[in-house]
Simulated assay, not measured.
Amino acid sequence: MHYLITGGSGFLGINLIRYLLSKNNIKITSIDISDFVYSDVKSKINIIKGDIRNSVLVDKILSDVDIVIHAAAALPLYDKTEIFSTEIEGTKILLDNAKKHRVKKFIYISSTAVYGIPDHHPLNENDKLSGVGYYGQAKIEAEKVCSDYRNQGMCIPVLRPKTFIGPERLGVFAILYDWANSGKNFPIIGSGNNKYQLLDVEDLCDAIYSCCTLSSEIVNDTFNIGAKEFSTIKEDFQSVLDYAGYGKRIITLPEFPSKTLLKFFELLNISPLYKWVYETISKDSYVSIEKSEKILGFQPKYSNKDALIRNYKWYLKNYYKIKNKKGINHTSSWNEGILKFIKFFF
Rank of each mutant, 00 (worst) to 15 (best):
Y38F: 15
S258G: 00
L268D: 09
F256Y: 08
E87G: 13
Y320S: 10
K195C: 08
Y209Q: 08
G13Q: 08
D221Y: 04
D96M: 10
I107A: 05
K248D: 03
Y274H: 13
K228F: 12
S216Y: 02
P118I: 03
F256E: 13
D119E: 15
N181K: 14
Y38P: 08
F173P: 00
I342D: 09
P122N: 05
S292L: 07
K105I: 05
I328L: 11
S210D: 05
S285T: 09
S303C: 01
N324W: 00
G133C: 05
V132K: 07
S39M: 13
S191D: 11
D242L: 04
I188N: 06
K283H: 03
T252V: 02
L20A: 09
I270V: 09
L21M: 14
K80L: 06
K99V: 03
D221M: 02
L57S: 03
S285K: 10
H2D: 13
Y78F: 14
N304G: 07
I28R: 07
Y108Q: 07
R310L: 08
A71G: 12
K128N: 15
F186N: 01
N304C: 03
I88G: 00
P272T: 01
F298C: 06
D127R: 03
D119A: 12
G166F: 12
S191R: 12
N324H: 01
N324I: 04
I251E: 07
Y302R: 11
V65L: 13
L21K: 09
F230M: 06
I31E: 00
P187N: 12
I225G: 01
G153Y: 09
R150Y: 05
D64Q: 06
K291C: 02
P157C: 04
G183Y: 01
G8L: 05
K104L: 10
I342S: 05
A244T: 10
D148M: 13
E125S: 01
N224H: 15
I107H: 02
T81M: 09
L159P: 00
K60L: 15
F256W: 15
K60M: 09
L262E: 02
Y243P: 07
M1E: 00
D127P: 06
I140W: 07
D148S: 14
L75Q: 14
H101F: 13
E82P: 11
S282Q: 12
Y315P: 01
D51M: 06
N97M: 15
K343R: 15
I52C: 07
P122I: 06
I208P: 01
